[in-house]
Design a protein around this nucleic acid. Structure first.
Lengths: 214, 214
DNA sequence: TGTTTGTTTGACCACGCGGTCAGGATGAGG
DNA sequence: CCTCATCCTGACCGCGTGGTCAAACAAACA
């Protein structure tokens, strides 16, 4: 009766097989949860808030997800994929400087269009990544190592100036996510007549151009 | 050491006039609260946790502070001062590039030695700065405008390469605070045999040298 | 010493929270 | 129309939480 087919992460290839209503409501819940979690953090969010934002009653929401934590976990695991996509697209065969700049642009664009996801991620990191640590040391670490090696090669070959590839990646993360995570601060300082993201775009382009020029 | 004689929020100039015990316990509470709030966020922290960490009973803690929120607010308002100190020391009469690099170093050093403060601040920003917005638009904005003007002058005079002064400041904030706020992520990627902060120091030195060189 | 002021505590309360449950409404297929 | 699985809800529960209070305890000081 109450069993909503759950992939569970471990189960691997079992198809969820959901009805139209399930599909729609699960989406609404995840969307609402993203909104609420990213704004108040895990502990600060209540299931009632999420349910209301999703247009459901609390028991009805619990009909689709076994617990508040389950929603959070599902949100995080799907998030990591989207989050790493821009880095995955960094092409080892492309033009080095253009590739890195393009990656930075993709990342900045994500901060602009998906600030809630950025904040959700930041929240999790701040707490010490209690529910993501394994993912960090798995997919994330592997991908970072992979792409860092590419950048290191470019450095060695003299295609770009010498830089620590890991910290270059960190720099891109820090600089782009800052505009989403600390948006209040940025706007408080710049005032209402500025477009932080477009300004950031030109500033960061200059920054990385000068950093990588040889 | 650090003086904790703080205003009560209401009276502008009223002297607190505290006993030795009050002094000691208030300090212990604020220290404990910093630890707990920075780790779990405001909602995630409980008064019991803070009291225990401070070596007090819950009612006893509430004897020194009227509420959980009062502790949080006091923490935040004293924090902003420490947080802006490095920028305040940026000397308009000093050597431009050296001043900016020195500022970056002070900021990075703060991330290394005061990561809990950094995370507390980050948490507040992520939530949209509900209890700090006025401070942001007050002291912070004023200071940022002041120093941005200095940097802009340096740019105009050709002492450093042309940069947007505001986004240069944002970049320093983002790059340095990242190593405190996202420490788990950084360590997960670099592994245990690295010292993120010393590596960051040399990387950021290079970065800002290249950015500002003309 | 006794009295006043400052400090600490156990017991307690109201409430919001995550989660449950029995059963009612609403489909979709026959 | 009936049937059955899916969907939804009001009422409820236990617990953790922020905060209170009267009373016990400790200092200070005369």
């Amino acid at each position: 009766m109450d069993q909503t087919g759950e992939e569970d992460g471990t189960g691997a290839g079992s198809a969820p097989r959901r009805t139209r209503i399930q599909q729609k409501n699960r989406e609404a819940i995840l969307e609402a949860a993203l909104e609420v979690f990213s704004q108040h953090g895990f502990r600060g969010a209540t299931v009632d808030q999420i349910a209301q934002a999703a247009g459901l009653s609390k028991p009805n929401l619990l009909y689709y997800f076994p617990s508040k934590e389950a929603i959070h976990i599902e949100l995080l695991s799907t998030l990591l994929d989207t989050w790493l996509a821009p880095l995955r697209r960094l092409d080892p065969e492309g033009d080095p400087k253009a590739e890195i700049l393009a990656y930075m642009h993709r990342k900045l664009e994500m901060s602009r269009t998906l600030p809630r996801e950025s904040r959700l991620f930041a929240n999790e990191m701040l707490q010490g990544a209690p529910r993501m640590k394994d993912m960090l040391e798995g997919d994330l670490k592997a991908l970072a190592q992979d792409k860092a090696a590419v950048i290191a090669r470019w450095s060695d070959e003299g295609k770009i100036a010498a830089v620590d590839p890991y910290h270059l990646i960190f720099a891109i993360w820090a600089l782009t996510q800052h505009y989403a995570d600390f948006e209040v601060q940025v706007r408080a300082i710049l005032g209402p007549d500025h477009d932080p993201f477009s300004e950031a775009d030109t500033f960061l382009t200059t920054l990385f151009n000068r950093l990588l020029a040889r």
